[in-house]
Design a binder for these strands. Sequence first.
DNA 1: GTCTATACGATGATAGAC
DNA 2: GTCTATCATCGTATAGAC
Lengths: 173, 173
Amino acid sequence: MTDKKEKILQAALELFATEGYNATATSKIAKKAGVSEGLIFRHFNNKKGLLEALNNQVEDKIKIIFTPIFFETNSKEIIKKYIYLPFDFNPEEYNFWRLQFMLKWQNEYYNPDKLEPVLDKLTQAFLDLKYKEPQKEAFVLMQIIESISIIILREGIEVVLPYKKFLLEKYKV
Amino acid sequence: MTDKKEKILQAALELFATEGYNATATSKIAKKAGVSEGLIFRHFNNKKGLLEALNNQVEDKIKIIFTPIFFETNSKEIIKKYIYLPFDFNPEEYNFWRLQFMLKWQNEYYNPDKLEPVLDKLTQAFLDLKYKEPQKEAFVLMQIIESISIIILREGIEVVLPYKKFLLEKYKV
DNA sequence: GTCTATACGATGATAGAC
DNA sequence: GTCTATCATCGTATAGAC
């Protein structure tokens, strides 16, 4: 990966994540990256190719972030670690997650199956903890954590910080 | 409100809600509405004016949908009615709600205060029902219901239908 | 109120030089 | 790999006729 190619990806990530994909002109990306506009098309064919390259990076990050949960065997720890997730986002990576949620909002890139292994893992944990409807509990918890993630990305972590303790207590983990 | 003006609003709503605001060209709206492109600007000044007109309609609908909850005095009924909300969306109005959630996603139009009265009402209900942290309970329930709303709008009601019963039982209402 | 015609800047993309 | 120059098209918006 050349230096300029990375600069383009970096600039595109920031602009896509904050202004939106359609609202971001390739000329703007080139300017921000300190690169000629033509170079974008050399490296990524077209604007969509640039988005896809970023999307792949995001998917890699998602895999990484969930790894510790998949290796956990203690049920309470699984739920605990899952609740911790959004509160442990690295601010430097906020734009990655912003892009992730933006893409989710655009039908084309939305893939519900992506999170199914997580749902399974949480379901197993709730089952082990004798919850009556483990699969539904897992699903609802995922919705809560996703909501909180979005709030953090949009408004910062302060607003929702108290919910970390609240959720840990609510689920007794 | 003239016939053509309404046709424009209708076409714009459908396109904005499905394709997105930026991705929708005024020419496309005009074509769908069976109207000249210039007429859009006569009636709404510019593209943004068109969005604002739709946004006002959405806000009116929001007020209407929450009215029965505000008039309810029985705490269990308040929570029950709130949980029912997304499951009672009229499919013909899906695009209204889609637009609402899309606008929420675009910083400019997002107003967190809009739902504060709802939060208050739910908080009172949870307080009355002796929940330890009524305000946080209310907030979390709102996140759950919002998530479910979004899923319904994106994938249809079937996927989340079982959660109606699940939530009613979870909150014992 | 509505339409046609059109201005005109912005945008995605290509060609060719270095 | 990278840049400059250039292009065709699109998108918003306006003017003027009816």
